[in-house]
Structures are given as structure tokens and as C-alpha cells.
């Protein structure tokens, strides 16, 4: 009787602790200079029978699947004034980030490359200005803008002026490789 009561308590405690388990947070950022281990292509076209060669580091899953990283990315998106040009995803002088059209590719690796290298029609290069992990966090948040991350990872409603449904309530709009506007007609407004 005592034993079974004790085991129930133990079981309950176990359940509680496992229920309390939080997703892993990485607080240590890599140095700003750290390079990219991802090889991305900006075209689906590659001469011959094989598609363009790409190699990804696997960091995508680390950042896209982690609510802490995405939440940090949302904070940094404003801190680095990304919202000044892209608004909260609808675009301004820079193109929108919540739709499915991506001039320079819509995967997280593409977005990281765009932030780090800049793009010719107005996107600044942030290499050496934003630590690498923070670039990944911003890129992960950008992915959430189009509803492309899991609902338990994407940010919820703002405490600020709410101009649209929260990221975790948006219907997914996966990047398409078709229908892109010309960069010069789209890069800015």
C-alpha cells in the first residue's frame, strides 16, 4: 500500500519534471566573423541532368525548430532596424517577407546569406556587424513571417499595435521558385 503510494508520487514527480522540460536554449553566440558552412544556389537551373549542388550544415533545424531562437530573432529584427525597410513582413523600401516570392531564395540558408552578404539593389551587407548566430535567429524569425514554422515555435500575438494575425496563426506560404518579380522592380519601393 505504502509502496504503491510512494510509486504513484514518484511517477507523478517524474511526469511533472518531464512536463517541465524546456527546449534547449543556446545563449553563447558565435563570433561575428564566423563564416558560413552552407552552400546555397540562387537558381534552380544548373547545366546538365543534376540540379544545382547545395550543401547545408543542418543548422536550419536548430534555429527553425526552436521557439527561443525565433523569439530572439523577432527582437533582433527590430533592434537591427530590419523593420524599418521590411515593416513587420509586409515590406516598405525593402520587399515583403511574409509572401511566397523570394528574389534570392526563401530557405533559411538563403536568408542568412542575404543578410550576411547583402544584395545589389539595396539590401545592406551585415557581415561582421551582426554575430552569426543572431543572423540565423533573425532568418528563422523571417521564416515564421510567412507562416512557415511550426505553430509551437512561431511567435504569438504582440503586446504592441497589432497590424495582422500573429506569426503562429498565419497560413503557411512556402517559398516558390516561380513568379518572382525582377529585382530592380522589386528590391525596394
Amino acid at each position: 500500500m505504502m509502496r504503491s503510494a510512494a510509486s504513484t508520487v514518484l511517477l507523478a514527480a517524474l511526469l511533472l519534471t518531464s512536463g517541465c522540460e524546456r527546449e534547449k536554449r543556446e545563449f553563447k553566440s558565435e563570433r561575428a566573423e564566423s563564416g558560413d558552412r552552407d552552400e546555397v544556389a540562387l537558381s534552380s537551373l544548373s547545366p546538365g541532368a543534376t540540379p544545382p549542388q547545395v550543401a547545408t550544415s543542418g543548422r536550419a533545424a536548430t534555429f527553425e525548430g526552436n521557439a527561443y531562437h525565433v523569439a530572439q530573432g523577432k527582437r533582433l529584427f527590430t533592434w537591427f532596424n530590419c523593420n524599418g525597410c521590411h515593416a513587420m513582413g509586409g515590406g516598405d523600401s525593402g520587399p515583403p517577407l511574409m509572401d511566397d516570392k523570394w528574389i534570392y531564395g526563401g530557405t533559411i540558408e538563403n536568408i542568412v546569406a542575404t543578410i550576411r552578404e547583402g544584395r545589389p539593389n539595396g539590401m545592406p551587407s551585415f557581415r561582421g556587424k551582426i554575430p552569426d548566430d543572431q543572423i540565423w535567429e533573425i532568418a528563422a524569425f523571417v521564416r515564421s513571417m510567412g507562416g512557415n514554422l511550426s505553430k509551437n515555435v512561431a511567435p504569438q500575438r504582440n503586446d504592441d499595435l497589432n497590424p495582422f494575425p500573429a506569426e503562429n496563426r498565419r497560413p503557411p506560404s512556402p517559398p516558390t521558385t516561380g513568379g518572382q518579380p525582377l529585382p530592380a522592380s522589386r528590391g525596394t519601393q
Binding site: A87, G89, G90, G91, Q189
Partner: peptide
């Protein structure tokens, strides 16, 4: 007219510093 020339997304009411709304 940024919503047209910049092909902005009208779902974000703050796009183009709020003009898109």
C-alpha cells in the same frame, strides 16, 4: 503607391510605414 510599385503585402497594416493599410 508603394503597395503597387514595391508589390508590398497588404496583410501587414504597417507596411510602407502604415500607408498600405
Amino acid at each position: 503607391g508603394a503597395i503597387v510599385s514595391g508589390q508590398l503585402d497588404r496583410r501587414d497594416a504597417t507596411a510602407a510605414k502604415g500607408f498600405v493599410n
